[in-house]
Design a binder for these strands. Structure first.
Lengths: 228, 228
DNA sequence: CGGGACTTTGATCCTTATCAACTTATGTGG
DNA sequence: CCACATAAGTTGATAAGGATCAAAGTCCCG
């Protein structure tokens, strides 16, 4: 289930290096980062971090899609964000992991002990700067999501979600990394509402459903109108 | 309406300095920051930044409460966050201000040209570090708010909001900085629903309303239960 | 004291949640 | 490869929580 590999110089061959926070580091710095990090494969459904746990690790996503999520006291889940390759997860400079992190697809991450990472970051302002830019962007994205949760109707939510997912995914692939339940948890809806909307949009010719996970957007412009 | 003052060495006397991002700077650095920043007073209701505008300034809040907000295409507002003394507003390292910033109470801010601030930040890793920590905390707070918007009932929302506001405000003062409409915009509700809940909570003895803006929490424990 | 904004309260409607039954996929062992 | 079991998704009926529409009440400030 958990496959931990330690390859020498894996940073050099890293597919997300140019886009991840480690992009601006020089040879020597990469060397050090190499020595404190390690790759890890995650099976679909595997949990990387648990909400409320001590924040012992942080990670870069190399491959796959993960979710950040939290729960209400009565057990309903809210997905707080989705993380794609080159994104960063975990809570540097913090004691507690404020949300759970779980792989939605088969995934590969590059993990660091938080304390190692914190120390490295404090000694390398360029890395901290990258991390800051990324965090600011993430905050912007999260705030846009708040508008969706607070003020949009179910249809607007799903239309927005489909468009954003299409943007994030590789152009060819229209495979949803999320189940209906997970989409519901992202949008603050129930699975039934999501399912009904999929059916309705298909009937109206906005999308096509080859299978449950294969969604094709047939009329993106109209979908954008529905997104509000 | 707009009162711009330029005092020498105002940082030294700054009431929020120990808590704001400028806390860790030394004498010389403060001197430089002093030279690129200036104080500005805002009347209640005055807008500091407009959503979508070029991001030309950033600011530290010295006094008062401001809101960050955005709007749906059909004009409904969603408040994305409230900002209190020592908090930072604006979008460093970005071209566009992603949300509007408006003073809810009479307020005082310490503003910088974004480009000046960006340059200063890049040259002073300790400041960037402070800003990073603050941004990470803000992201945590924002994500908790997502749970509220996505999964809580109206009563849970208002109860949570009252408790958090009480925590943020000075212990003695139980003056709401927000109108009913603004509370609704924070919680993703309508003004009518908020008003009804206030009445209900008063009737049930959870809170007392000396006046519209004067809210006393009578039974915080019970309120916490309602918050879920 | 009067006008306007803000707030409260009431009646009704609509969206979405909930509960329930059924259908379709996925997977396992015989 | 099929029969069965299990998980995931769909569809329907009903209910509930808030939104919306409407009207009255309060507060504030000149």
């Amino acid at each position: 289930m958990t496959d931990v590999t330690q390859e020498a110089h894996f940073c050099q061959a890293c597919v997300v290096r140019s886009r991840a926070i480690c992009a601006d580091l020089d040879q020597d710095e990469i060397q050090v980062l190499n020595s404190i990090g390690r790759r890890r494969n995650l099976a679909a459904g595997e949990q990387l971090l648990w909400e409320g746990d001590e924040a012992i690790i942080v990670a870069n996503v190399v491959r796959g899609v993960l979710k950040l999520s939290t729960q209400t006291s009565d057990g309903k889940e809210q997905i707080l964000g989705l993380v794609y390759p080159s994104d960063f997860v975990g809570r540097p400079f913090g004691q507690i992991t404020p949300y759970g992190v779980q792989a939605l697809t088969e995934a590969e991450v590059c993990i660091f002990q938080r304390t190692d990472f914190d120390r490295f970051a404090r000694e390398h302002p360029r890395l901290e700067h990258k991390l800051l830019e990324r965090t600011l962007k993430e905050l912007d994205r999260t705030r846009r999501w708040m508008l969706l949760l607070g003020r949009m109707t179910a249809e607007q939510k799903l239309a927005s979600f489909l468009l954003e997912t299409a943007e994030r995914a590789e152009p060819s692939s229209l495979t949803m990394p999320l189940s209906r339940q997970q989409i519901a948890d992202v949008l603050g809806l129930t699975i039934e509402t999501v399912s009904r909307l999929f059916s309705k949009m298909k009937m109206e010719g906005l999308i096509d459903l080859q299978s449950r996970r294969q969604v094709a957007i047939l009329r993106p412009a109209e979908l954008a109108v529905r997104a509000g």
